[in-house]
Amino acid sequence: MAVNSAELIEIINLIAHDIQKNRDFLTELDSAIGDADHGINMSKGFKAVTEKISTMADKDCGSILKTVGMTLVSTVGGASGPLYGTAFMRAGQAVGDKQQLGFEDIPILLDAALEGIKMRGKAVKGEKTIIDALEPAVEVLKSSPMDIKLMNAAVKAAKDGVEYTKGIIAKKGRASYLGERSLGHQDPGATSCYIMLSSTYKAILDRNN
């Protein structure tokens, strides 16, 4: 696999498309245990991202990812802005000025993204957040040499992570005020994270076939 800047933009556009498609679903999840704005916020953010990166095909991959991060920070409005914003900015820093990305870059950039989210949210696994989906995925990606099968396994681990959030109590964000009443609901942030990983996988799979 090799993804150049133009193809990276296509992958991000696919993520944006899938976020839009799931806008109402994410908002519905958030209305159960949060402030009912996750879908709206994310879809606003990624709409702005799509516009912003449309002219960046001649830029390096790090700059594109950093621009995604900055745009999310300035347009989302909720906690997912600083969290996903930091994640994309850290991922951008991790790949630097590369003009194309290979399989080996994926664990590196997602690990940087995970560390960024942990730093920004001061959260760890088990608190019903994005981390419950992202960390298991990163662990899989780091477990053996990277290929499309491992990527599939990582997306599956993220999905299991989303399921896992149904059985735990929220410790961060608005949902934490619900205490044990947050049990039984899946976390909207973990869900949007799974959607993004799954879109990325689909885009790379299409490219590989």
Binding site: D35, D37, I40, N41, K44, V73, S74, T75, V76, G77, G78, G81, P82
Partner: peptide
């Protein structure tokens, strides 16, 4: 609030 007048916060 956000720049488009939603509830939220804005780093910039």
């Amino acid at each position: 609030g956000t720049s488009d007048n939603r509830l939220g916060t804005d780093v910039f």
